[in-house]
Design a protein around this nucleic acid. Structure first.
Lengths: 249, 249
DNA sequence: GTTGACTCCACCCTTAGGGGAGACTCTACA
DNA sequence: TGTAGAGTCTCCCCTAAGGGTGGAGTCAAC
């Protein structure tokens, strides 16, 4: 199956101009050219184009992309790398959304915002990712921040907690997105593990207090909007999941 | 408090060049210039820069940004709009990640992927958003059929009921998306009106039975997935909103 | 009063295409 | 068989959002 420029353009939502440009710089060559000079693309070219577009979405320059795709038969590895990068970007986006939430909050209350806080999330992704490991701004992204700040803990421990919380919230958000029921084994196991982790790290939490806490989040602007900006509906899903967990005594 | 170009550049993670550029095109002017010609920025300028950067992150051109910021004292509204756009982008990113997942799956299994599926998520955000809306409409209709089909009613009535249900679910989903609390006046009024409507049209429903019904939806595959496909989290939000309504006896 | 960091502005350069022109080619239909 | 209308080719010029460089003035500190 061969595709004309128009076909490819429509499929991949790029312009014909773009295809021409990629040909000119040697990034994506047609697999065949008709006698009249018409360019034709095959499946392999579509796959290559897909990868180009993922990298472009991630703000790689075309020059940078070229060598990355040279490794001909490693499509799987490239896709995995791209996914990783997209996930990092998603996190950064969530940080930006949080920055907006905080800004709006300050705005309505008429408070001044710390200048450094106004620009959280605008760094390069690589800078940001390395900062991520240490910076506790990042912890605000998860509700754990609050659980933690009431009983201060040294930095290393904090990181581990942050990671666990991140993992937990991502897992729950994922369950919500993929339509898992609140009483599904997957979700219940997540909660159980999470509560166990908290208890092993100096927070006394049981099923009831966890359920109460997640219900409290619903009425608390800060926690609710943090959870909701990670995934719409998450606060409500979490609350009902915790309730369900409580009932499976 | 005034900031030099270097201060601002470091705070906002932009280059001094960029600040100069924004000055040249009249997008961001220093609030004061020293005798020696040094540019100094105040808090208002930082806030403006923050909004510029949010829009830039969203791929607005500087020319587009300029008029959007003219409305001097509407920072709140602008932030809200920016948040909305960031959420849309986050959704698109999730779609891209899903596309990668599917691609990787096909890759390992050696299956061919449908060419159209290879490029899900690369559209413009506005195109994509309207595509979403279409799908949404479709699902709303499906959902309505279902709400109604348990007690068959003649066609005209059905239409009116369908419209009301559409309006109701739409309103609730919107409240969820815009972060309204379940006990907010808006959501509570929606529920009250909805229950009143149902009673006026031959369904005997009260607060308690409505709450019970929405809770039942959580465990019922069919209803749950109908609601969730309209808006992730909707089933859970609706359930908690109905519960809240029950408690405001 | 000198050194090193900071700042100004001007000039040219780049990237990833977009616009449009002029000419060729393909498909459908009469 | 002719022709209209859509599709395609290449070429040239243009743009947006800065980056690089460089010469010259300015600041703060020792």
């Amino acid at each position: 199956m061969l595709y004309t420029v128009k076909d490819v353009a429509e499929l991949a939502k790029v312009t014909i101009k773009t295809l021409y440009h990629y040909q000119k710089i040697g990034l994506l060559l047609p697999c065949k050219v008709s006698e009249a000079g018409y360019r034709l693309y095959g499946v392999a070219e579509l796959e290559r184009l897909q990868q180009i577009l993922f990298y472009r979405e991630l703000d790689f320059s075309l020059e940078e992309i070229k060598p990355l795709l040279e490794d001909g038969n490693n499509r799987g590895g490239i896709l995995a790398a791209q996914k990783e990068l997209l996930l990092v970007r998603k996190l950064r986006l969530e940080l930006l959304i949080q920055t907006i939430d905080i800004s709006m909050n300050c705005e309505t209350k008429g408070e001044k915002m710390k200048p450094t806080d106004m620009f959280q999330g605008f760094q390069n992704e690589d800078e940001w990712k390395s900062a991520l490991a240490e910076q506790d701004d990042y912890l605000k992204k998860t509700y754990n921040y609050d659980l933690i700040d009431s009983s201060p803990i040294e930095a290393k421990e904090m990181n581990e907690s942050a990671l666990e919380a991140l993992h937990f919230m991502n897992g729950v958000a994922d369950a919500l997105r993929t339509g898992k029921k609140v009483n599904s084994a997957e979700v219940q196991t997540l909660i159980q593990t999470h509560i166990a982790f908290l208890n092993a790290h100096g927070h006394e939490v049981n099923r009831a207090s966890f359920a109460a806490q997640t219900r409290f989040f619903l009425q608390d602007d800060f926690h609710c909007s943090m959870l909701e900006s990670q995934q719409i509906g998450l606060a409500y899903y979490l609350c009902l999941a915790a309730e369900s967990h409580l009932q499976t005594t």
